[in-house]
Design a protein around this nucleic acid. Structure first.
Length: 422
RNA sequence: GGAGAGGUACCCAAGUGGAUUAAGGGGGUGGUUUGCUAAACCACUAGCAGGCAUAACGCCUGGCCCGGGUUCAAAUCCCGGCCUCUCCGCCA
């Protein structure tokens, strides 16, 4: 959520800063501005009448105690009370419309970001398969031959786009999860959380998924709970509506969770294997930090995610997302993309964002400053990293002509094998 | 899921319609006394959100789990919800 004061004071500037997203927000911002002034006008009047009501009610109490007649004043106050009721109703309705409109406005991208994605750098070399007898296979073929991915059975159980890993496949996935969590715990100072996978609607609103992206979410109608699309949602909301002491910052939380996404409107896109499923595993990193420190933490967060890829020996590149591509809540985002030799494509395995105070504002997440006032904190998140896609990357990058897969050294202590053999 | 009890500030807790400016205690902070500590005593301790105003001070509204309602007036009465506890049922 954007600062309403910013919109009040300089709506033109806000519209301009939002326009880099490739969308025109002029009419919505102007509507917000208008609603805000109507709201304040009515609120002012209602509060004035309430002040009157309070003092007169006190007088009525006094009169009654003294045994005097108060019926005249009471009659007058009846009118005031009904006027207050009208105004309160109006104030409530206008405010809720205003809030709702505001919740649909995305964050303002950071300064100095280009319109389109920019490749920051590439790490490692694309593996050379020119000596191989056959070109590298996509991971779904390898997975099937090794009998570690069974999408047919997954479809039988849940329909399309669900994963089912079997035997050594399930083991590899589990090894990767533990490996990632261990790195972030040992070297990056994260506290591991096992959060609920179902959360309330207001929690989804806090991080920005709701109300705008309700279509992408699974929900349980009976209890109005939502399946988390990423652990960012529960982790970032952990301290919502709190005022955190400076001495307790930064907060660094991580969680492995399955993630659930309806992927509405992506039919026919990336249908192969483990790339775009309704359910996938991910290790997520969340930082809650002081505003002046968030840029530094953002860089650090990126390197923490990269560490996983480096240790696995995967070739990847770092993208700075263009202003038109940045997600709803973020001001700046780096994507990490791993090279998939079988698919011959770069595949996103991590998205590392600084949301600044956007989410904190939505969830009233603050800290106490030296002068005693409160200020919104900054929130950041990054995948550390997407497990299923790394699984796929390992299959594609470390396959041999015999359709075996060499297990990267970094995770051998978690899976206790050197190769997956067909 | 059923029956009952409850939710008041950092904690405990009083408060069944107007005198409450939400009692009292604990804790905390500051002070007095003091060789030091403890104790005693004194003072302060309602956060938060919002509106108005501003050089600064300040004024007002809301707020006793949340949302409605009744009333001139609600912590207090009524309705709905959430949460916690106890018992029963179900259950890995």
């Amino acid at each position: 959520m954007l600062d309403i004061n910013q919109i009040r004071e300089n709506s033109g500037n806000v519209i301009e800063m939002l326009s880099v997203r490739g969308e025109d927000f002029t009419s919505v911002i102007e509507e917000i501005k208008k609603l805000d002034s109507v709201w304040r006008l009515n609120l002012k009047e209602a509060e004035k009448l309430k002040a009157e009501k309070n003092s007169v009610s006190e007088q009525i109490g006094e009169l009654k105690r003294e045994g005097k007649d108060a019926s005249g004043v009471i009659k007058k106050m009846q009118e005031v009370a009904s006027r207050i009721k009208e105004l309160d109703e109006k104030v409530k309705n206008v405010k809720s419309e205003l809030d709702n409109k505001q919740r649909y406005i995305p964050n303002i991208p950071a300064e100095g970001i280009r319109k389109v994605d920019r490749i920051v750098r590439e790490e490692g070399k694309k593996k050379d398969f020119s000596d191989s007898e056959t070109p590298p296979l996509p991971h779904w073929d390898i997975g099937e031959m090794l009998k570690i991915i069974d999408l047919k059975t997954a479809t039988k159980l849940s329909g399309s786009r669900f994963p089912l890993l079997k035997g050594e496949g399930a083991e590899l996935e589990r090894a990767l999860i533990t490996f990632m969590l261990d790195i972030h715990r040992k070297y990056h100072g994260y506290t591991e959380i096992m959060p609920p996978y179902l959360v309330k609607e207001e929690i989804m609103t806090g991080t920005g998924q709701m109300p705008k992206f309700g279509e992408d979410m699974y929900n349980t109608k009976k209890d109005n709970l939502y399946l988390i699309p990423t652990a960012e949602v529960p982790l970032t909301n952990m301290h919502r509506e709190e005022i955190i002491g400076k001495e307790d910052l930064p907060k660094k939380y991580m969680a492995y969770t399955p993630c659930f996404r309806r992927e509405a409107g992506s039919y026919g896109k990336d249908t192969g294997g483990l790339i775009r499923n309704h359910q996938f595993n991910k290790v997520e990193l969340v930082n809650i930090v002081l505003p002046e420190e968030s840029d530094n933490f953002h860089r650090q967060l990126l390197s923490e995610s990269e560490e996983v890829l480096k240790r696995l020996g995967l070739t990847y590149r770092v993208l700075e997302l263009g202003t038109c591509e940045i997600g709803f809540s973020a001001t700046k985002t780096y994507d990490l993309e791993v090279w998939m030799p079988g698919e011959k494509k770069w595949r996103e395995v991590s998205s590392c964002s600084n949301c600044r105070d956007f989410q904190a504002r939505r969830m009233a997440l603050r800290y106490r400053k030296e002068d005693g006032n409160t200020e919104y904190l900054h929130t950041l998140n990054s995948s550390g990293v997407a497990v299923g896609r790394i699984f796929a990357a390992i299959l594609e990058n470390f396959q041999t002509d015999e359709i075996n897969v060499i297990i990267p050294k970094a995770i051998r202590k978690y899976i206790k094998r050197k190769t997956l053999i067909a």
